[in-house]
Design a protein around this nucleic acid. Structure first.
Lengths: 360, 360
DNA sequence: CGGGGCTACTTAAGCGCTTCAGTCCAGTCA
DNA sequence: TGACTGGACTGAAGCGCTTAAGTAGCCCCG
């Protein structure tokens, strides 16, 4: 139950004033090299660490950033995406001695309430916003509060400005920073792959329709299909809530149609695995009668039999990028947009040439 | 970029002193009912929230607790256990307006460093400690720092005192609180189930051998087997790192033995799924030739074909319990031990009577 | 009617840090 | 020699809150 040393202790031991200590420890001018070194040494000996509350109180940053995950409880937990992201985020943050406040809430309203609270309590210097939505209320709120933010996963190129950032297109720095993912390009890649294998009937088992990237993927799918002369009777999306249950149900439904698809693209790994179990149950061999692609790779995709072809992306890297952007904004840089790497399609055993007679 | 109201603003508006406001808002005696109500109303109008830094600085709690997850990066992310736990934790914490600081680090040493830092920076009032280990250095460190803590998942009954809490058995309150899981009882239940189905050759694909509950499960397995006259040639554990890769490898290894087991018990859902994929690949029908039990249920277990028999536990409830215990310790209650509900074995399609001639 | 004991407040100090305005002491230059 | 600089350092205020100690007004009682 040791007492925590304070700046005063250091000052006494080093025979200088408290302010000299503060200057020395914060790399500010006003102390000689020697004194600075001496103070540093004493601080080290005492194992001093700045009291974060005191620091925050005297107008500095609080040294923490927040991340809220708005998911209904039951949707939670199986996707690997999130923890990977956080682990990337942390890598960058902890190097900058910044803490991460983490909250799980039920919906976006609750999320906004958390932002307000954090802001009022001065708990965080900025936030990372995940799951951008269409008509997202969050960037506006954050801009109003003046809480620096980075949105993670806004759909990026090739199609124009981000969906959620509002109307000031083109005019300098956006209201909040973002790290974008090339969902459209990735979808194009998937379509390319499947079309090249001869697939003409493709169904995209999409995630939540309110999320910006879901919309972008659906748009891209339609555009790519049209470019190849395939209409909505051949290629389309159906939406779900990302859960294994809805993924399975949607799979069952589309496979029961008179002209079932020969390829399915799932918006996450869990649904893809659920879907492949449904196929197994129905006695539909994968990949000979049905090809399956999972968006986001994880152990899951490698664990099933056959192993699933997946869009692999460096999720931790994505998190690092976001954390870096946030730190740079906190350090005073203008808001900006960073593009993450284009996901890579990793063909495994769940995709194969389309069965012969399915071009009706 | 609104200005945050302070206690001073409220005091001015309500025509009282700052301390009166403080008393009123903290439910302390010293203000009349009327004044209290008036102050409350003004605070409400202004949308006031206590500045957490100021509060922390004046000797109060910081209003935050911490949770560190020490996992090598690649092990991360597929298990549902963790997010579920956190969501339970949050439910309780956010009702008490307490924030959760969350860190992911590589190993226990780094975890200890985080505790020291949080302590020195006064960032957290207490911590939740997950994955108790044998010879765990963390409880001692936390006791030394005087940082209130609750360990989550220490193995509980029926076998005596917790593994990680050190030597002061029996003497009043333990150094740190804990929330315990009845791993031994659960394992007994699994053995009962499998033995009842006629299985005599059982292998437990365990998790990390350094974790206390892994040890407890292994001990319980051995004890239960002995009670039924089954020696280590029939029933045993092999350890892994919880990853799908090692789970699959271990499965392959034991199934290739001259006298392969007829039942496998996996320490998490990911390995169980990986194992059942291996069985599928080897052409070993589940459950007719091989029964499989997963420890911890999740969407995964319901998604595979056949669906996996699993030990279901209320992980979110576990988190709630831990958060409640921590809050009560922070509120001044003595440290204590809470028992979580015994997990329930949910038989699904992956367990069946043992094949006929395997009693050698 | 003065003092004891309430309740309902106010004053002021202090938490540990940052920071602005000085102070002090060379050193420089006319 | 004295005014002026600038580097090195100190003093003190202040961030927004809590809290111990103090004060004012009231009622009750001997």
């Amino acid at each position: 139950m040791a007492r925590r040393p304070t700046i005063k202790d250091i000052a006494r031991r080093a025979g200088v004033s408290e302010s000299a200590v503060s200057f020395a420890l914060n790399d500010r001018p006003g102390v000689s090299r020697d004194t600075r070194a001496r103070i540093r040494r004493v601080a080290e000996e005492l194992g001093w660490q700045a009291n974060s509350a005191a620091r925050a109180l005297s107008g500095e940053r609080s040294g923490a950033v927040g991340l809220v995950l708005a998911r209904p409880a039951q949707t939670l937990g199986v996707e690997s995406f999130f923890l990977q992201l956080v682990s990337g985020v942390q890598e960058v943050l902890s190097a900058a001695r910044t803490a991460l406040l983490f909250q799980v809430v039920e919906d976006v309203d609750a999320e906004c309430a958390v932002y307000r609270r954090w802001w009022a309590e001065r708990r965080v210097d900025g936030v990372l916003v995940v799951d951008p939505r269409t008509g997202d209320p969050r960037p506006a709120l954050l801009a109003e509060l003046g809480l620096p933010a980075v949105t993670i996963g806004e759909p990026g190129p090739p199609d124009g400005p981000p969906v959620a950032s509002g109307p000031q297109a083109g005019t300098g720095a956006p209201p909040v920073s973002s790290v974008r993912a090339d969902d459209a390009g990735a979808m194009a890649q998937v379509v390319e792959h499947l079309h090249g294998l001869g697939h003409r009937r493709i169904v995209h088992i999409a995630g939540l329709p309110g999320l910006a990237h879901t919309v972008r993927r659906m748009e891209s799918l339609r555009a790519e299909a049209e470019r190849r002369g395939l209409g909505p009777d051949h290629v389309r999306s159906v939406v779900t809530d990302y859960s294994d249950a809805e993924g399975a149900a949607a799979t069952r439904r589309v496979l029961a149609e008179p002209q079932p698809p020969t390829a399915l693209v799932y918006d996450n790994d869990v649904m893809a695995v659920a879907g492949s179990a449904v196929a197994a149950e129905l006695g539909i061999p994968v990949p000979h009668r049905l090809s399956i692609v999972a968006w986001d790779d994880s152990a899951l995709c490698r664990v099933t039999h056959p192993r699933l072809t997946a869009l692999v992306r460096d999720t931790a890297g994505f998190g690092r990028l976001a954390a870096e952007e946030l730190l740079s904004v906190l350090a005073g840089a203008p808001t900006g947009v960073r593009e993450s790497e284009r996901p890579r399609l990793e063909p495994r055993e769940s995709t194969a040439p389309a069965p012969a007679h399915t071009d009706s």
